[in-house]
Simulated assay, not measured.
Amino acid sequence: MTWDTVPSTLQETLGAYWDGFYAAIPKLAAALVVLAAVWAVVAVARYFIRQIGARTRMRQNLIDVLCMLAGTGFWLMGILIALAIVFPTITPAKALTTLGLGSVAIGFAFKDTFENFLAGILILLREPFAITDYVECEDIDGQIEEITIRDTHVRQTDGQLVVVPNHLLFQNPVTVRTDRDLRRTTVICGVAYGENVDNARSVIWNAVRAVDTVRDDVKDVEVFAQAFGASSVDFEVTWWTGSRPLDIRRSRDQVVAAVKAALDDAGIEIPFPYRTLTFKDPLPVRAHTDTAVEADEKADEPASRA
């Protein structure tokens, strides 16, 4: 090819491109129609999913996930059909094969991301816990503020926000503290060995029942002599109250104060720790009289003068 033939060659190439584009215009138009139809189908599908979700009171995050999955499925199908129309040699089977190989490579590259994504979908579908629930998982303890596809936001009781990957909540045991409105709590109270056990139990039981935050209307207060402590007979005091952490702390504070006041009023001793000392050899005991004290002082005088 010489410089003289370049213009003619370029003209032929551009002409071939134009002819190919002109011939492909009907196919491109048909592909655009297919994509427009897919857009309409996706819009209708999302509308129905949102309506059904609102009627069945689904979580908004779950509704968004279903809309996204439906949209992704319809768009994938529509794009494959459009490609088959524009490029007849690309059959849906070949496209799916290529997409499958690419998905494997992408899956290995973004393993953790897809793991969190699938865990988020399963959590939203199963609903083991809801927003505003207090949960405990591993070293995380707090209130759920938001559940997304990838992670869950937990506000700890000290005010710090923890963003937890969904796979951690899906693969590990999660304690939902506010699954019910009521929760049982316990304190240990000790009375001296010289006190009457039955009388002390009755005083403690009446004191706990009188506390406002104690829900004895649901389940009764339980007071059991639990063990022989080092300095006291220990009682296990159990009652039901609200399930939030603040409810537990407030109720425990009121119960401890009420039990202390009731035992004081009844004259029942809450003992301090006692210590008994033992010695290997007997200790000599000498009675100090005034005469013995004066003799000791006189014996010490020469040493002090020296």
Rank of each mutant, 00 (worst) to 15 (best):
L118I: 10
T5H: 13
N199K: 10
T5M: 11
I81C: 02
A40E: 02
D141W: 15
V41C: 05
I123T: 00
G73M: 13
D300W: 13
D296V: 03
T113K: 09
T72A: 15
L32E: 04
G142C: 13
A45G: 10
D64T: 06
G190N: 04
D64P: 00
P88W: 05
T56I: 09
G159M: 11
R183I: 00
V237K: 09
L28I: 12
I140E: 11
T157Y: 12
T185W: 11
E127C: 03
P88K: 12
A24Y: 06
I248A: 01
K111A: 13
V187K: 08
A31R: 04
Y134H: 13
F48P: 00
P165D: 12
G15Q: 15
S202I: 03
E301G: 01
L161P: 06
I131F: 02
T175F: 14
D198Q: 10
L28M: 12
Q51P: 04
A45Y: 02
D216T: 04
P271N: 10
V44N: 06
V174I: 11
T9V: 10
G190V: 05
S202G: 02
G194M: 05
A207L: 04
L10K: 05
D198T: 06
V293S: 09
A292V: 13
V41R: 01
I131K: 09
E138A: 12
R59L: 12
R249V: 09
R50A: 05
F74V: 06
L14R: 08
R244P: 00
D181G: 08
D247Y: 07
A306Y: 12
N116R: 08
G53W: 11
F279V: 01
Q11E: 03
S304Q: 14
G53S: 14
M58T: 06
Q143T: 08
A266W: 06
I144S: 01
A257D: 03
V44A: 15
L169A: 06
F74K: 03
A70Q: 03
G142K: 12
R252D: 02
H288F: 14
A37P: 00
Q11V: 03
F87R: 05
I25W: 14
G100C: 02
Q171S: 10
E12T: 07
R183A: 01
N172A: 06
Q60I: 04
F224H: 09
M68K: 03
A31K: 05
D216I: 03
V163G: 04
